[in-house]
């Protein structure tokens, strides 16, 4: 069972978190064309190896996180807050 280092709560068991989706997806503008929405919603890289993915600390501070994880070894390389401003602020305070 992997552990994830939540920037607010510290190292916690995977069971406190929910997996979100692949983190490299950039959702297009709400009025973008159908093809770019189709790509964002339905096409997945299904990476073998290192990838960025979103997780939520559901049973904790409820932050959405960007987790860089190896899908083969489950090794986690980095965890940061998905909210860009919050991540900046937490960097400053720590």
């Amino acid at each position: 069972m992997i552990q994830i280092e939540c920037p607010f709560c510290g190292k916690r068991d995977q069971s406190e978190f929910s997996y979100g989706r692949e983190g490299q997806i950039t959702f297009p503008a709400l009025n973008a064309d159908e093809n770019s929405w189709y790509d964002a919603v339905f096409l997945r890289k299904n990476t073998y190896g290192r990838q960025i993915e979103t997780w939520q600390h559901t049973h904790g501070c409820r932050s959405w996180l960007l987790v860089e994880r190896d899908t083969v070894t489950h090794k986690i390389f980095s965890v940061k807050l998905a909210h860009t401003d919050w991540q900046e602020q937490i960097k400053k305070t720590t």
Partner: peptide
């Protein structure tokens, strides 16, 4: 709830 949080934190910060 989780969906609204995702939108606010990941998609529309």
């Amino acid at each position: 709830m989780a969906r609204l949080e995702e939108l606010l934190q990941v998609r529309w910060p």
